[in-house]
C-alpha cells in the first residue's frame, strides 16, 4: 500500500530549507520505498496554525512530519537551549551530529510525544545592518536589532543593543522602514527575506571562533503514524533519520549559507576579530552560568549537560 506523509513547515516552498533538505529527503524516502512512501509538502503554514504550534501538530497528527524550532515554544524544551548559548557552535554539520547525540541522552523526556527524525542547527549567525557595520561591542550600543532566539535576545541586551521582538515575516518590512537597524540571522535566511536588498553591511564574527549564535531545529514525525508503518517502510524512515540525517541537514545549511552569502556581494562585509570577541565571550559565560543554574533548579545536572554539549561539539568537529 501507499502511505502519504503530510509535511508541514513555516517557510515558503522556495526557501533553501525546502529545496536543499525537505524535498530531497522526501525524494529519498520515495525512492528507497519504491514510491510507496510519499510526501505531500505544505509550506508557509498552509495547514493552519502558527509556527510555534508545529510541534503540537506533529504530536497530535494534524501533520505527519514537521520541521520547527524548539525555541519557538519556550519552556517546553529547556535542555536543548544549551546549544543556543553564544559561542557554542563550531560548524553546523558537526554541531548537528553533536546535538543529536546530546538529545539522545538528555532530551528524551522532552520529545517523548513525537518520533524525532533529526535535530540540527543552522550556520553562524551574522549581523545584517542597514546603516553601519558592527566592528566592536560599542557599535551595538542602542541599536535596535531583531534576534531570533530567547538566548540571543538576552545576549544582545547584555552587549548593549536593544533587542526588538518580532515575527520572521515582519523582518523585511521592519528593515525596509527602519523600525529595526539590523537583524541577526545566518546567511541562509537572506534570500527568504531579501535581506541583501534591505541592508548594506554584513558583519561576521571571526570564522576561527565558535559562532556568535545558532538556533536548534527539530524534524519530527507523528508517533502513531510511524508506528502504523509496515516494517519495511519503518526501515526506510530509520535509514533516513538519526545522527546521519542530522549531520546531513547541518551540511545542507552550510551550503545554504554559501548560497545566501553569494547574494550579498554588492554589500560590504567585515569580520569582527577574535581579539574583540574575547570580551563578548566573557559576557556569554554569564548567560551560560544562568542556564546552568536554571537547569539545576529543574533538578537536572546543568553543569554536566553544558560540559557534555561542549565536548560533543568538539568531538564531532572537523577542521573548518
Amino acid at each position: 500500500e501507499e502511505v502519504t506523509l503530510k509535511v508541514h513547515f513555516f517557510l515558503p516552498a522556495t526557501s533553501l530549507a525546502n529545496t536543499l533538505f525537505i524535498t530531497p529527503w522526501c525524494e529519498r524516502i520515495a525512492k528507497e520505498s519504491a514510491q510507496r512512501l510519499k510526501c505531500q509538502i505544505f509550506p508557509s503554514m498552509q495547514l493552519g496554525g502558527t509556527p510555534p504550534q508545529l510541534f503540537e501538530q506533529a504530536r497530535d497528527g494534524v501533520a505527519d512530519v514537521v520541521w520547527t524550532l524548539p525555541g519557538y515554544t519556550a519552556g517546553r524544551f529547556p535542555s536543548i537551549e544549551v546549544f543556543e548559548l553564544p559561542f557554542m557552535m563550531q560548524n553546523p554539520e558537526a554541531t548537528s551530529k553533536a546535538l543529536w547525540d546530546y538529545t539522545q541522552k538528555y532530551s528524551q523526556a522532552e520529545f517523548k510525544d513525537v518520533k524525532p527524525l533529526a535535530f540540527h542547527v543552522h550556520g553562524d549567525g551574522v549581523f545584517h545592518m542597514s546603516a553601519k557595520p558592527i566592528k566592536t561591542m560599542a557599535d551595538l550600543k542602542g541599536l535596535k536589532l531583531r534576534a531570533p532566539t530567547r538566548m540571543t535576545n538576552r545576549f544582545l541586551a547584555m552587549l548593549g543593543a536593544t533587542p526588538v521582538g518580532m515575527p520572521v515575516p515582519q523582518v523585511g518590512d521592519a528593515l525596509s522602514k527602519g523600525v529595526i537597524d539590523g537583524a541577526v540571522v545566518p546567511y541562509e535566511v537572506v534570500p527568504s527575506v531579501k535581506i541583501q536588498e534591505l541592508v548594506k553591511y554584513h558583519s561576521e564574527t571571526d570564522p576561527t571562533e565558535p559562532a556568535f549564535y545558532t538556533s536548534t531545529f527539530v524534524f519530527a514525525m507523528n508517533k502513531a503514524k510511524y508506528e502504523s508503518l509496515p516494517a519495511d517502510l519503518k526501515k526506510v524512515i530509520d535509514n533516513n533519520s538519526g545522527q546521519a540525517l542530522s549531520g546531513l541537514i547541518g551540511k545542507a545549511f552550510l551550503q545554504a549559507d554559501a548560497e545566501g552569502k553569494k547574494l550579498t556581494t554588492r554589500n560590504t562585509t567585515n569580520v569582527i576579530p577574535a581579539a574583540e570577541l574575547a570580551s563578548w565571550k566573557k559576557l556569554g559565560q554569564n548567560l551560560a552560568d544562568s542556564w546552568v543554574s536554571d537547569m539545576n533548579g529543574k533538578g537536572q545536572p546543568g553543569a554536566q549537560m553544558l560540559g557534555a554539549a561542549r565536548s560533543l561539539i568538539t568531538q564531532h568537529a572537523t577542521p573548518r
Binding site: 503530510k6 495547514l47 493552519g48 496554525g49 502558527t50 504550534q53 503540537e56 501538530q57 497530535d60 497528527g61 494534524v62 518580532m166 515575527p167 515582519q170
Partner: peptide, 23 residues
C-alpha cells in the same frame, strides 16, 4: 480529507493561532 481526530487536533490550536496575531 484527513479524519475527525486530526480536525479536533487542528482546532485545539488553530483558533488561538488565528486570533493571537500581532499584525
Amino acid at each position: 480529507l484527513a479524519g475527525g481526530d486530526p480536525l479536533l487536533a487542528h482546532l485545539k490550536g488553530a483558533v488561538y493561532g488565528r486570533v493571537s496575531v500581532y499584525d
